[in-house]
């Protein structure tokens, strides 16, 4: 069968392959010659110090930030051709929250690409959006103006908008930045359930202490690629030292890489 064959073909290629990517603002490279291959079905973190180019890497992969060199493939093809298989959760600060729109309408934006111009928003669109809102615990807020929400609630809405796209690859830019603990838990639960459904997730992450707990793969980045691979092999004190330099001391490193072993502080 032709379709089955096509499916198999795309399944064997990585959801996102980045080769030799360089991005620069002005004369200063923010991301330099980075190679990265996101394994299918992984929940992967991009970790690095401030200014390491984590968000820029994502934006370049999505075609938002202009790249100087390098190649981006989404399921083996140029991004433009696979855009529908990919969902993006931007940083919360990228949006004007005074914009006159409700929670439900923001989630519906994720379905715009399926609607033709002569079609109006139908019941089934709304039902789908409501189901995704329920998944992040925000269905009771569907008619709120987005500016009335707290930071964590706004982040949940963004996640619901990505869910409604039913994408195979979801890219999230600091989803845990500035959210409350309950939201962090709700978001990671959704991400893990997506992973169980076989979806791939790539996430810029800033909290080193939760990397081992949340993610299975990690890319350590500081303009250049420091290391990449499964968390247990890659998320080591040595690599962290390389990525962060003197910003982490020995005790911090020990605690981050071995969160389970209780390091007794005398």
């Amino acid at each position: 069968m032709k379709t089955a064959h096509a499916m198999q073909h795309t399944d064997t290629t990585s959801p996102l392959t980045i080769t030799g990517l360089t991005v620069s603002y002005g004369q200063k490279p923010v991301v330099f010659s980075v190679d990265c291959e996101v394994p299918e079905g992984s929940l992967m973190a991009i970790v690095g110090p401030n200014g390491a180019g984590k968000s820029t890497l994502l934006k370049a992969a999505l075609g938002i930030a202009p790249r100087i060199s390098g190649d981006i493939r989404v399921y083996g093809q140029p991004y433009r051709m696979q855009a529908h298989r990919l969902a993006y959760v931007p940083q919360r600060s990228s949006v004007d929250w005074d914009f006159p729109t409700t929670v439900l309408e923001v989630v519906l934006m994720g379905l715009f690409h399926t609607m033709r111009w002569w079609q109006f928003t139908r019941r089934r669109h709304r039902d789908k959006a409501m189901a995704c809102l329920a998944r992040v615990g925000m269905d009771a807020f569907a008619d709120r103006q987005i500016g009335q929400l707290s930071g964590g609630q706004q982040q949940r809405v963004f996640l619901a908008r990505a869910l409604v796209q039913e994408a195979d690859l979801t890219i999230l830019d600091e989803p845990f930045a500035g959210v409350d603990a309950a939201t962090e838990k709700a978001i990671i639960e959704v991400l893990k359930s997506l992973k169980r459904e076989g979806k791939t997730l790539l996430c810029v992450h800033h909290d080193l202490s939760t990397v081992s707990e949340y993610f299975d793969h990690v890319l350590l980045l500081n303009v250049r690629r420091i290391a990449m691979g499964p968390v247990q092999d890659t998320f080591t004190a040595e690599h962290l030292q390389q990525a962060y330099g003197g910003r982490l001391n020995a005790i911090q490193l020990e605690r981050i890489t071995h969160p389970d072993s209780s390091v007794s502080q005398a």
Binding site: K59, L62, G63, I64, R80, A83, H84, L86, A87, Y88, P90, S94, V95, D96, F99, T101, V106, M109, F112, H113
Partner: peptide
């Protein structure tokens, strides 16, 4: 585009 240019871009 009015709401979020970058997101619009990811939507083709």
């Amino acid at each position: 585009v009015c709401f979020d240019r970058q997101y619009a871009y990811t939507q083709g």
